Amino acid sequence: MKRNIVIASVAAAALVTGGTAVAVAGTQSSSPAARSASPAAASTGASLTQAADAALKAVPGTLDSIDRDHGRWEADVLGKDGKWHEVTLDANGKVIDQRVDPDDSDPEDAAEAKALRNADVSAVEAARKAAPQSTVTSVEFDGDHSPVWEVETVKNHKERDLTVDAHSGKVTQAPADDDHGDDDSDDD
């Protein structure tokens, strides 16, 4: 019981101070190594930066996107081998699945890869620029027109979508989605 109160207090303090670490819910391990880690690290799991580093260690290359989904980190990496890789990490940043993307034969992928390789700002740098006082939940490269990083953040329970220019690092508010409730389920 005392441990839960301490963990809750540390998590609350981190949120109140507006730290730049990515706050995510996770489960605490009962291993001796986990117990010796700091309470904040044990309660929040891996930060976006830690998950990105682990994904790039598993697949050397350039990070294309990373997001937190159902308690896991999902990362797409353009490997040094020229192939697109999907890397799944657990809440603590440990790689639990890694595979070559089976849908990487799209001709648009070559243009996306070139734009991604030419970006001056990395995914992690874009996250830091977009949300110095917020929680980043997703970073994704968009090289369709002018290359930008699409960054989703949460602060005080409010979600914001920002874009970060892949060359200058300039942060702007993303245009509002105009999907009017469309959930992309029209391919019945």
Rank of each mutant, 00 (worst) to 15 (best):
M1I: 10
M1R: 12
M1H: 10
N4I: 06
I5S: 11
V6P: 03
A8G: 08
A8L: 12
A12G: 12
A13W: 08
L15M: 14
L15G: 15
G18F: 08
G19Q: 07
T20V: 12
A21N: 11
A25C: 10
Q28M: 14
S31R: 06
A34E: 10
A37K: 14
A37E: 15
S38I: 07
A40C: 10
A40G: 14
A41V: 06
A52R: 00
A52N: 01
A55S: 05
P60S: 09
T62W: 03
T62V: 14
D64F: 14
D67C: 13
R68A: 14
H70S: 12
H70E: 11
E74N: 12
A75M: 04
L78R: 08
L78T: 05
G79A: 11
K80L: 13
K80C: 09
K80H: 13
D81P: 03
G82E: 09
G82T: 09
H85T: 07
T88A: 12
T88H: 11
L89Y: 04
D90Y: 09
D90Q: 11
K94F: 02
V95T: 07
I96D: 13
Q98L: 14
D101R: 02
D101K: 06
P102V: 06
D104G: 06
D104H: 07
S105K: 15
S105Q: 14
D106P: 01
E108P: 00
A110R: 02
A110C: 00
A110T: 05
E112C: 03
A115V: 00
L116H: 03
R117A: 14
N118L: 08
N118R: 07
S122M: 06
A123G: 02
A123N: 05
V124Q: 02
A126Y: 03
A126G: 04
A127E: 06
A127M: 08
K129M: 13
P132C: 08
Q133V: 11
T135M: 03
V136Y: 01
V136A: 05
V139D: 01
V139G: 02
E140Y: 00
E140F: 00
F141V: 02
D142M: 00
D144H: 04
V151D: 02
V151H: 07
E152Y: 03
V154I: 15
K155E: 15
H157V: 13
H157W: 12
D161K: 14
D161P: 08
T163D: 07
V164H: 00
H167I: 07
S168I: 13
S168C: 08
G169H: 10
T172N: 12
P175S: 02
P175C: 01
D179W: 03
H180T: 03
G181N: 03
D184M: 04
S185M: 10
D186S: 06
D187Y: 09
